[in-house]
């Protein structure tokens, strides 16, 4: 069906524009009624002489084009179509993935996860405007997020992640990194990260986990460590993280 359409389009380009409106050819889709493919002749893929184009600007905005598209659905279903749908609909949907939905991201070499409840936005990295006399420390400066100035912090520095984008040692370059906007209890911060993997459902252990003596990240603001896709992901505790951020900015 689609191949019919493609060959039709190709051959239509060969039709000279002058004769096209007088002898509109038709698309054959095995339908009862023939359909005029005016968009190939007087529309944007033809000579553009259609008077309706003034109102609709492009054929895809035109009701005639939309009606023609709907006519594609008047064809007979392909073989096996009904059987496939019957099988697909009979299967039960698994009732939600187990675990807590968390946004998994990376700062430097450290994979971190934060509850999606505090996540407001995952955006492109933007220029960070530095503040005078604030060259060291967790506060990197301010960023413009949709016209609003937000404090941009380095979660990497806060947690003691040493290398990479967002750690404070290397600021995000032109293309690298993302800017996350988080809010919790009325406080909003933006912070750069190296990479965002997306929302994953991770099964967290019930209680808080005692950090190993050399696990600085988990000790600073973590709740527990879980293994996801072969990598150890440190799930951050929202309360601890925001409290630590507030302390470090004061």
């Amino acid at each position: 069906m689609l191949s019919d359409f493609k060959t039709r389009r190709r051959s239509a380009t060969a039709v000279s524009p002058e004769t096209a409106p007088d002898s509109p050819s038709t698309v054959s889709l095995g339908l009862a009624r023939p359909m005029t493919d005016c968009w190939q002749h007087i529309g944007v893929w033809g000579n553009g002489s259609c008077v309706e184009l003034k109102a609709h600007l492009h054929c895809r905005n035109c009701p005639t084009y939309a009606a023609a598209a709907l006519r594609l659905l008047d064809s007979r279903p392909p073989a096996g179509y009904r059987h496939e749908w019957t099988q697909h609909l009979a299967a039960k949907i698994s009732t939600g993935a187990a675990g807590t939905p968390l946004l998994v991201f990376r700062i430097g070499d450290e994979w971190l996860a934060l509850g999606i409840g505090v996540m407001e936005e995952v955006g492109e990295s933007r220029p960070i405007h530095k503040l005078p006399h604030r060259r060291e420390g967790v506060l990197l400066g301010v960023v413009n997020v949709r016209g609003e100035l937000l404090a941009c912090v380095s979660v990497g520095r806060l947690l003691g992640v040493e290398k990479g984008v967002g750690t404070g040692t290397a600021l995000p370059g032109k293309s690298a990194g993302r800017m996350l906007v988080v809010s919790h209890g009325g406080e909003r911060y933006a912070f750069p990260v190296t990479e965002v993997r997306g929302v994953q459902h991770l099964v967290l252990p019930p209680g808080p986990q005692q950090p190993a003596f050399d696990d600085q990240v988990l000790g600073a603001a973590g709740r527990s460590r879980v293994v996801s896709r072969g990598q150890s992901v440190c799930c951050l505790d929202e309360g601890k993280l925001f409290a630590a951020l507030k302390r470090s900015l004061a």
Binding site: Y81, R82, W85
Partner: peptide
């Protein structure tokens, strides 16, 4: 709104019934 599925006839069903099918079990 589902695609047309294969329907099993319901025995002794009055005019107007097309049949039955299994939706999510």
């Amino acid at each position: 709104v589902l695609a047309m599925v294969e329907l099993q006839k319901i025995a002794g069903a009055p005019v107007g019934t097309a049949g039955e099918f299994v939706y999510r079990g």
